[in-house]
Design a protein around this nucleic acid. Structure first.
Lengths: 114, 114
DNA sequence: CAATTGCGTTCATGTCGTGAACAGTTGCGG
DNA sequence: CCGCAACTGTTCACGACATGAACGCAATTG
């Protein structure tokens, strides 16, 4: 059986690409803080984004620092960011509709039990 | 350090109390199917509901069957069901508002990137 | 030239969901 | 009566996964 690498859900992908696009010169620790992930998971996701070809880890900070990479979105990464934003939006809108239904149902229940 | 028993979130509590109230004579397997839980977790949650005094496991099905309990809501269980329904509703409405905000933000982003 | 700081990376550890397996009970057909 | 199949609640070994302390390295500071 082929091993299925745990793939990053849209929500995470969206937030990471958004953060990185706005601020490529950011450490994994800082990124993990801003997105609310553990350091280990951030590292894992970042590698996945790089392997997917959406992000490139170049080192340009202060005179070619070996560490302290800059995580820049590739052209593919930019279009993926746009795509995932749209997908994410549609998802949210679907959730929105479902919530509407659930709320009206809940209101009825709450009224009955009062 | 005191061991913190994993407590059942409102959503689960709501769904379980609702199902049990509508149909007390239900097996754990059937309940797990309807609510979408694993058997093990269903068993765990049921015990928690019983320990909390919201549900009583009496055996009344076909001539005092030793197994095949009936899970009936206690008076406390009934009022908790009403309470959790209201809490759950408020929660959903809060989510609803947050989604509204997120969606408008996402729409802007999607428009910019187009 | 230490010492400190910050970096990316690793991985032992703990947490938690899962469902196959088990023992007990009932109902049914022979 | 007596298997036997079909159900029940309960358990627990297993796997999947998140976590963050620890490590080696580079750059900066004193």
């Amino acid at each position: 059986m082929a091993i299925q690498k745990t793939l990053i859900p849209d929500e995470l992908r969206y937030q990471l690409l958004k953060k990185l696009h706005a601020n490529p010169d950011i450490s994994q620790r800082e990124l993990s803080r801003q997105v609310g992930l553990s350091l280990g998971k951030t590292n894992y996701c970042l590698k996945a984004l790089i392997e997917a070809g959406w992000v490139k880890a170049g080192n340009f900070a202060r005179s070619s620092n070996k560490l302290n990479y800059a995580y820049v979105l590739t052209p593919k990464g930019v279009s993926e960011k746009a795509a995932v934003t749209v997908r994410f939006l549609q998802n949210k809108q679907e959730q929105y509709r479902q919530l509407e239904n659930e709320i009206t149902l809940l209101k009825k229940e709450a009224a009955v039990q009062k």
